[in-house]
C-alpha cells in the first residue's frame, strides 16, 4: 500500500480488502509481476493506494480489459477488482463471458449491496427489505426482483475453476478472505482458469448503521442471502 490515506468512509470494507491483496502479493513476491484492473465505483481510485501496476476500465468492463492484458502478457498476474454495481449490474455480460471463456484471470468482487459512489442506490445485490435511495420503502421482490447471486450463476460454467464467498466481519473471516485471494492467485499462476472471490463488505454510510452494526448485519442478515464458503473448486488445496 502507498502512504496515501484512502478516501473511503469510516468502516468501509474496501480498505481491508485492498490491504489483504497487498499482503498476499508481498508474501508471494508477485508485486512486480502484477497488473490490476480497477473498476468504476467507490474503488475507482484503487490505483492511488496500490503500489503495483493498475489500470482503469470503463464501468463493468474490467474483465474485458484484464482479458486483453493477460493474453498479451501471459506471464503476469492479472486481476480485476470490482464492486457489485460494476460486476453484477453493468458488467454482468463481461464477467459471465470471461468465466465462460475460462480466462486465466482472477476477480476480487467486493459486494456491499448498494451503489456507494453515486449515493446508495439499489444494486442487483441489494437484499429484499433493504432501504436504499431508490427503494426508500425497501426493496420488494414483486417490483424489484431478487438479489442476484453471481457466484452461484458462475458455478455452472465449465471454464470457472474456483469460486469462494467470504466476508471481513472479524479477524477470522479476514484471514479466510486473505487465504481465498491467495488461492485465486495460485490458481492463475497454475494456469487453471478463471477464479473469483466475493467479499461481503459493509457500507455503513448507505446502510445507515455504524461500522460495528454493519458487521453484525452481514453476520446476521447478508450471509443468509449470500451464504459463505467455497462455491466451486473446493478440491483446490491451499
Amino acid at each position: 500500500m502507498k502512504q496515501a490515506p484512502t478516501h473511503y468512509c469510516p468502516g468501509c470494507g474496501h480498505g481491508i480488502v485492498h490491504r489483504l491483496i497487498c499482503e498476499v502479493l508481498d508474501e508471494m513476491n508477485l508485486k512486480e509481476k502484477t497488473v490490476a484492473v480497477a473498476p468504476v465505483g467507490c474503488s475507482v481510485l484503487a490505483y492511488d493506494y496500490w503500489d503495483f501496476d493498475t489500470t482503469e476500465a470503463a464501468h463493468g468492463r474490467t474483465p474485458a480489459v484484464a482479458t486483453g492484458i493477460k493474453r498479451v502478457l501471459p506471464d503476469r498476474l492479472v486481476f480485476t477488482y470490482q464492486g457489485d454495481g460494476d460486476l453484477a449490474a453493468i458488467g454482468t455480460a463481461e464477467i459471465i463471458h470471461s468465466g465462460n471463456r475460462g480466462e486465466n484471470i482472477s476477480t476480487i468482487f467486493v459486494n456491499n449491496g448498494v451503489y456507494g459512489m453515486t449515493g446508495g442506490q439499489m444494486a442487483p445485490t441489494t437484499l429484499i427489505g433493504q432501504v436504499s435511495t431508490t427503494t426508500p420503502g425497501s426493496r420488494r421482490a414483486d417490483r424489484d426482483g431478487y438479489p442476484l447471486k453471481i457466484m452461484e450463476m458462475m458455478a455452472v460454467l465449465p471454464g470457472v475453476v474456483y469460486l469462494e464467498r467470504t466476508t471481513v466481519t472479524s479477524p477470522k473471516e479476514v484471514t479466510k478472505t486473505k487465504n481465498a485471494i491467495k488461492r485465486s492467485f495460485e490458481i492463475q499462476l497454475a494456469e487453471e482458469g478463471f477464479s473469483m472471490v466475493e467479499v461481503l463488505s459493509p457500507c455503513p454510510t448507505y446502510w445507515g448503521l455504524d461500522p460495528s452494526q454493519s458487521m453484525r448485519r452481514i453476520e446476521n442478515e447478508v450471509v443468509k442471502a449470500f451464504p459463505l464458503g467455497v462455491i466451486k473448486g473446493g478440491d483446490h488445496g491451499p
Partner: peptide
C-alpha cells in the same frame, strides 16, 4: 495484531 487485521485504513 487483531486490531491491525480489522483496521480498514492501515
Amino acid at each position: 495484531g487483531l486490531c491491525v487485521m480489522m483496521c480498514p485504513d492501515c
